[in-house]
Nucleic acid binder design. Sequence first.
RNA 1: GGAGGGAUGACAGAGCGGACGAAUGUACCGGUCUUGAAAACCGGCGUGGGCUUGCCCACCGUGGGUUCAAAUCCCACUCCCUCCGCCA
Length: 434
Amino acid sequence: MIDLAQLRREPEFVKASLARRGVSSATMDEILELDIEHRRLLQEAEGLRAEVKELSRRVGEARRNKDAGADDLAARSRELGDRERVATQATDAVGAILREQLLLVPNLPAPEAPDGVDENDNVEVRRWWVGMEEGVPFPAYAEHQRVAHWDIGTELGILDMEAGVKLAGSMFPLYRGAGARLLRSLGFLALNSHMADYEEIRPPSFALTETMMSTGHLPKSADDMYAIERDGLWAIPTAEVPLTSMHRGEILEESRLPIRLTAQTACFRREAGAAGKDTRGLLRVHEFDKVELFAYCSPGQAEAAHADILARAEGLLQSLGLTYRLLDLCAGDLGTSSARTMDLEVFSPGVDRWLEVSSVSWFRDFQARRANVRYRTAQGTTAFVHTVNGSALAWARIWAALVETHRQADGSIQLPQVLAPYMGNQTRIVAKAS
RNA sequence: GGAGGGAUGACAGAGCGGACGAAUGUACCGGUCUUGAAAACCGGCGUGGGCUUGCCCACCGUGGGUUCAAAUCCCACUCCCUCCGCCA
C-alpha cells in the first residue's frame, strides 16, 4: 500500500510517479477527496464520542454522590450516543471505500526503473554464457540441442505431460525417474548453497486471504490463484506470500535486521487467459517448485540485500552452465507491489526462447505497510521495514533449459558436475533399455 | 470429532460494569551512589489516528450485541492448553 500521508504531502510527486505505470491522476484525486471527507467525518464522530464519555463520567459521579439529575445526564448522553452511532457509521463507510481504493493503487516505481509501458520496453542489462569471460562468443547451439524438452522428456522417459493431464488436467507436469530426481537435486543444490546466510523455512502451501492481501496478490489477482473456498484458503503462487507474513504485525528490533529467509515450495498459478499460447511442455505450468530468497531489511540495507539475491540467482545459473540475460523491468511492466525488479531469463535452445526463471524485486515499504511489519530504530521510533525477494530459482523452466542445453549428440543428457552429489554421481541421463 | 479450561503491554500476572490504556513484578533505558560492576534508591518505559500541539479518539484474541458507561455482561467465531476418540 502506498503511503497516504505522502500522497497528501506531495500529491504531484506521487501522481507523476504513478503516471509512469499508467495510473491516472484522476484516480489519485478521487482518493484525496475521499481522504478529506473521511477526516471530516472522523472529527465529527470523535467529538461526539468525547462528549458521551464525559457525560457518562458525570453520570457515574452523580450516582455515587446520590445527586439528583443523573437521569437527565444519562438521557442527554443517550441522545448524543445515537448521533455518534450514525456519525461513526458514515465514517466507517467512507473509510472502507478509501481503503478499498488505496489497496488497488500499485507501488511507486523507483526513479532508477526505466521508462516504458510493457515488456517490450524492458532494458537488457547483460547476457552471460559459458566462456563469455574468456572471450568465447555467444553459443551457436548444435542441432542435437535444438530439440524441445517435451520431446526429450518423452524420449528419455523423464517427463510425462500426458500423465499429468490425466491426473490434474493440462499444464500440470509429471516428472519421472531421473527427471524427478533432477528436480529434487536442483532444490537441494540451491537450498544448500543458501543455508549459511538464509534461514531455511518450510511454510504451509496454503494461505489465508489476509496473508494474500499483505503481499498485494489480493484483491487484484484473485483470478490468477487457486482458491479453496470451503476453507477460506488460497494456494500460494510463491513462497514470497508466507515469508512476507511470517512477521506480520510485529515490531522487529533493528539489530535483528536483515532477516534473511529461504524456502522451496510448490507454486500454484491458474494462468487465466494464457490457454493455448506458449504453454507447451514446461513453458507455463499450473504448478512448479521454486526456491525463494527473502529479506526483511532496514531501508539502508535493501540495496545490498537485493544485489545479494540477484548474485545468488546468477551464480546458480552459471554453475548449471546455462545461458541467461538480465532485464531491468520498465515502470509499466513492474508487478503491483514492486518498486524495482530485475528479471533473469534463461535461454532454452530447444524451443529457441528466453524463459523467465527469476524475478528479483525491491518492494520498499509497500508490502510492509500492508502486512504492518515495522522495526524500532536507534532513536526509539518505529518505521516500516523494506522487503526484498527473488527466486533462485524456478525449477520447471530451468529443468527445460537444462535438458535442452546439455543434450548430447547421442540423445543422452550430460548434467553439470555441480549436480553430481545430488544425483548419486549419475550425471548422465540415457533412455531406459526397456 | 466430544468434554472442560483459557486468551490482558517485551514477558509473567491482577482487574470481572463507572477517573482502566490498564495494578504489581521482571526485563529494558536514564540518573544517584561506586575506582568499576553488582545491589539499593529515584525517574522513564505500548501502538496507531485526528486536529485548534495541547488536547481528543481507538486498541485488553476477532466480530457483533446490551448499557448513559464494557478489559469487565451476552452471542458467534478463531486460536492455545488438558482429557477422550481417530489417525501418517
